[in-house]
Every structure is written in C-alpha cells, then in structure tokens.
Amino acid sequence: MLHCESLTKTYGSGGRELTVVKNISFSLEAGGFLAIVGPSGSGKTTLLGLLAGLDRPTSGSVTLDGAVLERLSEDARARLRGEKVGFVFQSFQLIPTLTALENVQVPLELRGIAARERATELLARVGLAGREHHYPAQLSGGEQQRVALARAFSNRPRVLFADEPTGNLDARTGATVVDLMGELNRDLGTTLVLVTHDPDLAGRARRTIRLADGEIVADSAA
C-alpha cells in the first residue's frame, strides 16, 4: 500500500544545508497501522509530509497505492490526495469559515460528489449529531478533532495520515479520538500512519518506527 525507497529531504537555508530525512526505506501493507515516533526535530513530520505527497523529496521515491508520487505533477498529487488520502492534524485545521458539516463535505465536493448525507452520517458516527451547523470556533478541541476525523474519512481514504492527532487534547478526549481511529481502521480497512509523542497512542499501533536525526533507529512490529 505504502512504500518508500531511500527517501532523503534536504532544506537549504542561508547557504547551510540541513538534511531532515536521511535515506529512509520501508513498506507498509494495506490495512496496516504504523506509528512514527521520535524526539522533536527528528524528522517525523517531514517524513509524514513526504509520504503523503505534500512535498517532493530531495531524492528517493514514494509509492502510494501503486502511484509513484514523484512522477506525478503537483495537481495530480492533489487529485490523488482527494481520492485516496485522509489527514488529521495536531491543530485540527478545520476551515474556520465553514460549518462542521461543510468541513466534512469538502473532500467529496472537491470531486463533485454531493456529500450531505454521508457527512451527516459521519458526524453522527463521531458523536456529533446535532452539531452539524456549528462553526469550529463554537466547538471544543475534542469536538473539532472529531469533525476533522469525520472529514478525513469522508472520502473513504485508503491511507489516513495523522500528525500528533491527540497533541492538543486532554488524555480522555485523546483516548476517544484514538478509539475512533482504531474503529475506522478496523471497519473500513484504512491504512493508518500516525506521528506521535504519546507512548500510549504508539502502543496501539501494530508497528512502530522510531526516528532520530532523520534516520530509522528502530522498526518494531508490536
């Protein structure tokens, strides 16, 4: 489902080069659940971005559901994301000007699919029935992240990328969100890739990759 080969990312800033991700290769099967852990600045988020095709690697390659990302144009990668990828962010990243329902609809509407019913259903599933017309600012952090989850799953993604999904939530709310993610992983067979600091959360993954200084220092199946 997800495969990367000799992935390297170097940022040049002010004449100095900084290699954030160094020569990383691994494969993840469909329906897998991978946690990427490591200290701050170890390159976790950069790796996630590269795997999701949000940026181009300096060298190496990423294959996502059979598509070789670096062969695709910027717009083609956008379309691929729209069809096969879901995202959950640490800071939720709901569009503040859209209601909860509209936020969930966006990925499907981008593809021209009427999505009202499915979005309503998904919101109910994450426990937000009746809150459809609330704006993000009117929801608590946990509720916002649940809307984000509903949005991430609205297009039935093959892969869900999550960047510190519980980072801004208290322990109980975080647990609810993680439970939901696990449920969706099981029920829909979605491949999960998450970046986290939280050992509890990492413990739920079936596989953990530990990064330090941009390199894999451990890769364990739980």
């Binding site: 956008a78 994301r81 729209g82 995202f87 962010f89 990925p107 949005r151």
Partner: peptide, 9 residues
Amino acid sequence: VLRCLGATA
C-alpha cells in the same frame, strides 16, 4: 488544508 484535501492550486 484545502490543498491537503485534494484541491489543486
């Protein structure tokens, strides 16, 4: 975010 969700530039 729109771009992450698949909107083109």
